[in-house]
């Protein structure tokens, strides 16, 4: 098995901030907009370096999405920053009409996604955003797993023409992907090779998938582990190749099982090569207050849940 080392826990939102800072220096067309959450989104450094290219919108997310759409006219590349809940559900029609349908080159950057936002509770813990955004024609949907990958993704989406939803989170999580990685939109990353079960994970669940694979390995089960950072367009080829080898799959995500990565994988399998699948995801529920670890435990989004799902799905082959 490949060994992955946590180089020190960091939050993915700081990866976004670091990426934005670097972009600010190398691309004059990058502009940033924030709806009163500059510190939370780690956009302060960009703001300090480029005050003329930073736009404080205030608590007015709908307006922010419209302004961002307009700013693309004339060649700017706007990055909007607010929590995932306020980046999607709150402003769905603005994104739909002014950005997606109008094919504007806006990068919607969404922090504090999922349960790991923690104590603020369900009003802020969106678990439906991936579904909302992937249903928009032409929208690219990315959910990164650690600091380094989030930074690389932030840099990569500036070079991609078209609307992008970039989803990341609040808590400090293991940072294990390479610092110098090249982020390729739509390309899965193979983390472990195995023959008994495929584990397809995204976001904070990728590290949990690696831990699960280790546990399974210790019990004589070998798992293919795939890091899916791009949920749309989905790397169907990588998924089909893996499931073709293992014959079954566990999908793992910090999202509702309706509308998430799991459903996208199920569609690919149903269309090409049906195989048993188990879903590690929230079960059509809202979240609640608690520490991130307590919540991930209570809602079954951790390595243990992945191990159990893997054993179950292998039994269904």
């Amino acid at each position: 098995m490949k060994k992955y080392t946590d180089s020190g826990k960091k939050d993915t939102r700081s990866g976004f901030g670091a990426g934005l800072t670097e972009l600010g220096k190398k691309n004059d067309n990058v502009v940033a907009l924030c709806a009163d959450l500059t510190g939370s989104l780690k956009m302060d450094e960009f703001q300090a370096n480029h005050p003329e290219r930073f736009f404080q919108v205030g608590i007015a997310e709908a307006n922010m999405m419209g302004i961002a759409a307009g700013m693309t006219i004339g060649g700017k590349i706007p990055f909007t920053g607010t929590f995932a809940n306020f980046s999607t559900g709150r402003v769905y029609d603005q994104i739909r009409q002014s950005i997606a349908y109008s094919h504007k080159n806006v990068k919607i950057c969404a922090s504090h996604a999922g349960l790991t936002l923690g104590e603020d509770g369900a009003t802020h813990q969106i678990l439906e955003d991936i579904g909302l955004m992937k249903m928009l024609p032409g929208m690219t949907v990315i959910n990164t797993c650690d600091f380094n990958q989030t930074k690389a993704a932030t840099l990569a989406i500036a070079d991609h023409q078209g609307p992008v939803y970039l989803r990341f989170g609040r808590p400090k999580v293991p940072n294990f992907t390479p610092e110098d990685q090249v982020f390729e939109i739509g390309k899965a990353v193979q983390l472990q090779e195995g023959n008994d079960v495929t584990i397809v994970a995204t976001g904070h669940l990728v590290w949990e998938a690696l831990e699960a694979a280790q546990t399974l390995h210790d019990q004589g089960i070998s798992a293919d582990v795939i890091n899916i950072h791009t949920i749309k367009p989905l790397d169907s080829k990588a998924i089909l190749a893996s499931v073709g080898k293992t014959g079954c799959v566990v999908t793992a995500e910090e999202h509702n099982y309706y509308g998430g990565l799991g459903e996208s994988v199920a569609r690919v399998l149903a269309e090409n090569a049906p195989a048993p699948q188990e879903f590690v995801a929230t079960q059509d529920t809202f979240g609640e207050s608690g520490t991130p670890a307590q919540l991930m435990d209570k809602y079954g989004l951790n390595a243990e849940a992945i191990v159990n799902a893997a054993k179950k799905v292998i039994g269904r082959k």
Binding site: A62, G66, A68, G70, M71, I73, D93, R96, S98
Partner: peptide
């Protein structure tokens, strides 16, 4: 820009102006 769902054009035009 697409318009029809009301209330969005002013924001878009502000962005274009900036």
């Amino acid at each position: 820009v697409a318009s029809g769902s009301l209330g969005q054009g002013m924001s878009v035009s502000i962005g274009a102006a900036q």
